[in-house]
Nucleic acid binder design. Structure first.
Length: 451
RNA sequence: AGGUGAGUAGUGUAAUAGUAGCAUUGGAGUCUGUGAAGCUUCAGGUGGUGGUUCAAAUCCUCCCUCACCUUCCA
């Protein structure tokens, strides 16, 4: 007889999330707090387009990132565009375009929403917000220190302690030097070493040994990998290798890593930072220092985020050489970390009407008067709400009470006639009639009393 | 890509083949110049398709989504 209307699903797309006010309040609270930290280090915020030509990702990011994980579209002229899966290529493009314009070092940060078409799991969505903090054109290792400090400040500002997180650092050139000068690993197999180290904590001991045996025959290399895997300090690595050639001690990688270690000691942040030779990071463009921040909890030891130093950021766009170091931090993973340790204050989750002025009126004739008052209050930056029912005062006050409002104004024919306002302290239930001109002072008085 | 588990009003839960119920939330009122209780009332649901059956939230199929794990990768 009649056709039922087909309704659409109210679910967002897989891996995407609706941000209701209660969620967004939390996100914004976290973002604001991080922003405060980054800005006292004098980093400036930048942002770029959500859509980019696909080539700048195809060239620099990994093949897989673009081929399998990218959202892309064709525009009306059939040009292939990508929804950014990360913002670093955009940063590179922006810097390259005007690189002469900026004083070095460049300290920038961004809070982009990025997209990756991948399988969702804990801490991973298809749409995500990722803090990116980079310092560019500062080649000294003090840049590394600054980044470490920022990370420590961010996490401790939420109340996290060194018991709860730890920054594990390493240096790719250090690993390179060991491979070159001590283990004599063929050049083309170095990336395999990276891979193995990266996996060393994820695989069972037995599996790991098998994987090593599958890939390398030389006993010295096999032993070398195991030494690296377990080493807790640079000194320990050196102690366990025999016959360390001078070439190694002269190498950039060894020098850099030792220097970083010294700086960390000088700055007295050793409680937050540890050497870990198995931290190498997946991305190819990292060249020097690399680090990962871990949740050290025994139950769910896991990486929260990481970063490192990359040379030649601009190589896609120009010949100019610019080195940088930075990190990318997913908001979601950070949230999970904070939740784990109960570092999110409960009051953030609830909406707060405690500073709101609620305007209730006896009847519709007070409409204009109510608006006049609201205008005055808002001009003074008091948030206020007019109840548009303009009748049945009891129900209006009930609503105010339910919202948690602490100050209500009541307008009736009497008040309007005399240009006055009834102001009611909802907590003490006291009320009085005041002159229109005094209303601001009276509101301050009530809030002062209550606080 | 593979694996495990789960989907019943906004939320939390009952109904194991036989009337989809309870609580809470939401709206309106009770109460036309005074709020938090109580009461009244309204709204809102079996993720979707197909099948078995007299009868499906319940059994079967496929799909979707969520959670977690593995793989992969920031």
């Amino acid at each position: 007889m009649e056709e039922e209307n087909k309704r659409f699903s109210t679910q967002p797309l897989k891996g995407m999330e609706d941000s209701y006010p209660s969620n967004l309040r939390l996100d914004n609270w976290i973002i604001d707090q991080i922003r405060d930290i980054i800005e006292v280090y004098c980093y400036e915020e930048y942002s770029g387009p959500l859509l980019e030509p696909i080539e700048i990702f195809a060239a620099k990011s990994s093949e897989e990132l673009v081929q399998e994980q990218a959202y892309w579209i064709k525009d009306k002229r059939n040009k292939k565009l990508i929804l950014r899966p990360e913002i670093t290529p955009t940063l590179a493009r922006m810097i390259a375009r005007k690189s002469q314009e900026f004083k070095k070092p460049i300290r920038w940060y961004s809070v982009p929403t990025c997209y990756r078409y991948e399988d969702t799991q804990r801490g991973r969505r298809r749409e995500f917000i990722q803090f990116n903090v980079d310092i560019l054109g500062e080649n000294s290792l003090y840049a590394e220190l600054e980044i470490l400090n920022i990370i420590i400040d961010i996490l401790t500002s939420f109340g996290a302690t060194s018991e709860q997180f730890q920054i594990y650092y390493n240096n790719r050139r250090f690993i390179d030097a060991i491979c070159d000068f001590i283990l004599k690993v063929p050049k083309n197999k170095i990336s395999l070493i990276y891979n193995l180290l990266d996996k060393s904590n994820k695989l069972e001991e037995k599996e790991f040994l098998e994987t090593i045996n599958d890939n390398f025959k030389e006993e010295i290399i096999k032993q070398g990998i195991l030494i690296l895997k377990d080493a807790k300090s640079i000194q320990e690595v050196l102690n366990k290798f025999n016959n360390i050639p001078d070439q190694f001690l002269e190498s950039q990688g060894y020098k850099e890593l030792s220097e970083i270690e010294n700086l960390i000691q000088d700055l007295d942040i050793t409680e937050y930072c540890s050497f870990a030779s198995n931290v190498v990071r997946g991305l190819d463009y990292y060249t020097g220092t690399v680090f990962e921040v871990f949740d050290t909890g025994k139950e769910n030891r896991r990486a929260i985020f990481g970063g490192g130093r990359y040379d030649n950021l601009l190589s896609l766009f120009s010949n100019e050489e610019l080195s940088g170091i930075g990190f990318g931090m997913g908001l979601l993973m950070l949230k999970l970390f904070l939740e784990t340790y109960n570092l999110i204050p409960e009051e953030i989750m609830n909406s707060d009407y405690s500073d709101v002025i609620y305007i209730a009126s006896i009847n519709i004739k007070q409409s204009q008067y109510a608006h006049k008052i609201a205008r005055e209050l808002r001009y003074e930056e008091f948030p206020c709400i007019i109840d548009y029912r303009f009748e049945n005062l009891g129900n209006q006050l009930k609503k105010a009470s339910e919202l948690g409002v602490r100050v209500s104004l009541i307008l009736g024919p009497k008040e309007m006639e005399q240009n006055r306002i009834t102001i009611k302290n909802m907590v003490t239930e006291e009320q009085k009639i005041v002159e229109f001109d005094n209303i601001i002072d009276e509101i301050y008085n009530i809030f002062d009393d209550l606080d």
